[in-house]
């Protein structure tokens, strides 16, 4: 286990380095820069002064080296747009996105896996067709449209739910305020994740159910519930875990649209601000954080994997 973790840590560092190089050079290749976000009537001298102030007159390689040096000591630089440390800006926003992601994943798993199992064991039946229909609908409806429709229905027409914001935190925190703000964003994100889990569970279960060992378990005189929920599910979970590991990073990027619609002050809206303001340090910081999340997800998936499937022995 320890050896595995050390190994993975080494690999992750290399991966992170590659990602930072690519991102750093790509954003610098993009036309314009922080100075192009100044007022229209700014003079060339004013623009040049800003470039020099931010240190952008130096060669890209030099800037990357000094950024990297800072990054290794935990300093990701100062945001161009707000003059606050990048680390602080991300730390303020990240918990909100994690909140959305965790709720979405938990709800999707709790609902998705049983529905997928039902769909598999009742293959070809009416419930199966209904589940399939809604899976396809869920996968094809764009998040921004659904988000607007939900706001129209629940916020404007019915007035049940707030249309934007994260609700009061700290001393003014109240449970309903928190949940009511969460419902719609989580619902939107769930519609993008849930159908994937349902469909994967279904196909994985179908494959497992036709295996020989399932016949053996029935031949032993097992109840159908034991056959399905203990023997079949344990085997079917293996590919489902993989897909969940892939879906979590996708949720983070999916959060950009959802957070923008609902004014949710998470990483998603921060990405937008960073890109719009040509805030290079912030873009780099967010990229690193998201890369780390992806690496962590993969690591967790691999560890869970080895716990579920004894044949996987690398951990």
């Amino acid at each position: 286990m320890l050896k595995f973790l050390i190994n993975r840590f080494g690999q992750s560092i290399i991966l992170l380095l590659i990602v930072t190089v690519i991102t750093f050079f790509l954003i610098n290749l993009a036309p314009g820069g922080p100075s192009s976000t100044m007022r229209m009537d700014a003079s060339p001298e004013e623009r040049q002064a800003m470039v020099e102030k931010l240190g952008l007159d130096q060669p890209v390689i030099v800037r990357y080296a000094s950024w990297l040096k800072g990054a290794f000591s935990g300093d990701l630089g100062t945001s161009f747009t707000s003059n606050e440390p990048v680390v602080q800006r991300i730390a303020e926003r990240l918990p909100y996105t994690i909140e959305l992601t965790i709720f979405t994943i938990i709800i999707s798993i709790i609902i998705g896996i049983p529905i997928g199992i039902l769909s598999a064991i009742k293959r070809g039946s009416v419930p199966d067709h209904i589940i399939n229909f809604f899976s396809v609908v869920g996968l094809s409806v764009p998040a921004f449209w659904l988000g607007l429709m939900l706001i129209l229905l629940f916020s404007i027409n019915l007035g049940w739910l707030p249309s934007s914001g994260v609700g009061a935190r700290g001393v003014d925190f109240n449970l309903w305020g928190w949940i009511s703000h969460l419902i719609m964003p989580v619902l939107i994100l769930t519609t993008t994740i849930l159908p994937n889990i349902v469909r994967f569970t279904r196909s994985s279960m179908l494959e497992v159910i036709s295996q020989n060992y399932i016949r053996t378990i029935r031949a032993k005189g097992a109840k159908e519930s034991i056959v399905i929920y203990i023997h079949a599910l344990r085997n079917a979970l293996i590919p489902i875990i993989t897909i969940i590991g892939v879906l979590i990073p996708r949720l983070l990027s999916g959060a950009v649209i959802t957070e923008a619609i609902f004014g949710w002050t998470g990483i998603g809206t921060l990405i937008l601000e960073a890109a719009r303001g040509r805030d290079y340090p912030l873009v780099m910081g967010i990229t690193i954080v998201i890369t780390i999340v992806v690496i962590l997800c993969n690591l967790i998936v691999d560890i869970v994997y080895s716990r579920v499937d004894p044949r996987v022995k690398n951990v």
Binding site: N212, Y213, R215, A219, K220, P310
Partner: peptide, 20 residues
């Protein structure tokens, strides 16, 4: 099943649940 009448199968390699 499994009590009064038992059965063994052709494919011993795949007849046991791999995860238990």
């Amino acid at each position: 099943r499994g009590s009064k009448i038992s059965m063994i199968f052709q494919e011993p390699l795949t007849a046991l649940n791999p995860v238990f």
